[in-house]
Design a binder for these strands. Structure first.
Lengths: 341, 341
DNA sequence: CTGAAAGCGCTTACAG
DNA sequence: CTGAAAGCGCTTACAG
């Protein structure tokens, strides 16, 4: 049988309360008693039943998530993932509060962070805009002792406890390798479509992409970045314009959102002049485009994984427990038409 | 506050025992009482605290895993994942027993299944060999009411409750697309290296690979499969031989294990005559080969995910709970040198 | 068919 | 510095 606190207590000749104090490293126990208990723990190979402990503590974790009110498929997926997490919230004793914030808006995000912190939740997760006022607000959250995790897009500097998102530089490199190799020996130009160079994830993807392009595929020329603000209509216009003036675009990397607009522009392009395309996030739009061959590969981050990871990390931080970094690493999924789930 | 069984009891005007009977659909409750309780549950929005229930039940789940004693990196990874699962076993109330069985050996596996079932565990997981005697043994396990899950490689027919592994046909298709596109316009032959056509995962990968090759890349000719028994030395010999007699091998798909042998053979090949290579499973060997450019892509199944999924499913089946198929789908990871974790 | 009481493994006031 | 007792939300004999 697995040993319990009762076994430890009788083995060490102390009461349950004392065992509990030693187990949880609470003060007010003599060195001698502490030793006896520690020894019993080792001898019996005791491991705490976390579920029972949580039950007894009646502990809950009110967590606040700040999500951009941007209406694209990815953010909708993120909200869905949060809803699902909320469903399991009972079991895990977390209570999730979702707060909408305007997209790409540093000052608004900073204010939302301050408001969230004022309610003293057990932890806060937010999609960062990489701006000084946000960094300042984040620093205050940390200073107030509230665990803070960035989600999807990170904040420069160290003003957060953890980042729950993909390695965006790796994503950019992967996109470059796929596009470069898929393009075969063809010569020509490479178009890049981003949401905004103000968010760090887009900037990181771009820089890594450009670097691999320059080093491994120097026969292809990178064009200036188009910023589509993750808005399908803006994206459609930008891509159509560039298609109109350039006939030798052999590859296109869409590193942000708004791919509905991209697809429309691609569809109007004669088939033999369509570029090889890599885009981000598996949505209904990109899935259909993969199937039909308009897009060649999709790099995806699993919003569900990110949300669950953020929750696990915030709980761990709230409890002062260590985080297993390896386990919390968010993978970049690569989808071709052949391995669609 | 979240409602508890106490709230239900007082609302319905019955005792805790009766609430419990209704909640768990146990017999011996009058229709009238049942209704009162059900109504209270709905009105208060009660959801059961599973952790507390498990604590009270003192329920544990003794699970048996049958793993081939094959000494390759993937199986070692699987064992590691099982060890980790064992570490968390306390919290999840599962007790994992690991049984070694000879690799690629139907009769031995069938016997091991019978032996495992005789001990009446809460569930059994095994890496299937797709043979009639195994199917028969599996059918007996199911008939005995013991939940049964195949791991990594599946069993034909329906003699199991669930399969915790990747879609091997999708893996084969993906490999074909990557190799075909990475090969660019080059003409030549494609070599395929398998462990054994007796295991279903290898067969499925091969068939799907061949099918996409034929339809999308008909300018490349598929050579007969080499069976390396997942053994590095056999693999090295086979690949070296084929390299010696063929100079126009432009692509190679290694769909089984034993890649250390493949790497050795590739290293001896002059650089300008090395094929494009896709292999399975991210190990130290394949990781290094990706880095150095000897391998172009690695398709990976996460042994940790598979083990955790198998455990979740077996527990759910043991409790008669439904399985969320979507959540238990095992992804095919694609790694290039650019997105190595 | 129904209920009172004890217990799962841990924690928490409270008293000393 | 230490311990006895009650309680977290649920389940389980046992008695009626």
């Amino acid at each position: 049988m697995k040993p319990t606190v009762h076994d430890i207590a009788s083995r060490a000749g102390v009461s349950l309360a004392t065992v509990d104090r030693v187990l949880n490293r609470r003060p007010g126990v003599s060195a001698r008693t502490r030793e006896k208990v520690d020894q019993a723990v080792v001898e019996l190979g005791f491991v705490r039943d976390v579920a029972a402990a949580n039950l007894a503590k009646g502990r809950t974790y009110p967590l606040t998530f700040l999500i951009p009110s941007n209406d694209n498929s990815f953010m909708r997926g993120l909200r869905l993932a949060l809803d699902e997490a909320r469903d399991r919230a009972g079991v895990e004793r977390v209570a999730i509060r979702l707060v909408d914030v305007p997209a790409f808006d540093g000052p608004a995000l900073a204010e939302a962070l301050r408001d969230a912190a004022a309610e003293q939740p057990a932890g806060i997760a937010f999609v960062a805009v990489d701006a000084p006022e946000v960094a300042a607000a984040a620093a205050n959250v940390i200073a107030a002792g509230i665990p803070l995790v960035t989600l999807v897009s990170d904040l420069s500097g160290s003003q957060r406890d953890h980042y729950a998102g993909i390695d965006n530089a790796a994503a950019g490199r992967t996109a470059a390798s796929l596009l470069g190799r898929f393009a075969g020996g063809r010569q020509g130009k490479v178009a890049v479509l981003a949401g905004s160079m103000l968010v760090r994830d887009h900037r990181e993807r771009y820089e890594a992409f450009a670097s691999v392009m320059a080093s491994d595929f120097s026969h292809l020329q990178l064009m200036p970045v188009l910023e589509g603000r993750d808005d399908p209509d803006v994206v459609e216009r930008l891509v159509s314009e560039i298609f109109a003036i350039r006939n030798n675009i052999v590859a296109l990397y869409s590193l942000g959102a708004g791919n509905r607009g991209l697809i429309r522009a691609l569809q109007r392009r004669p088939e033999d002049r369509r570029p090889v395309v890599v885009a981000h996030e598996l949505t209904e739009t990109t899935r259909a485009a993969l199937r039909s061959g308009l897009i060649d590969a999709v790099l995806n981050q699993d919003a569900g994984h990110e949300v669950r990871s953020a929750i696990r990390v915030l709980k761990a931080k709230a409890d002062g427990l260590p985080v297993v970094a390896d386990q919390e690493r968010i993978r970049i999924d690569i989808f071709l038409k052949d391995n669609l789930p």
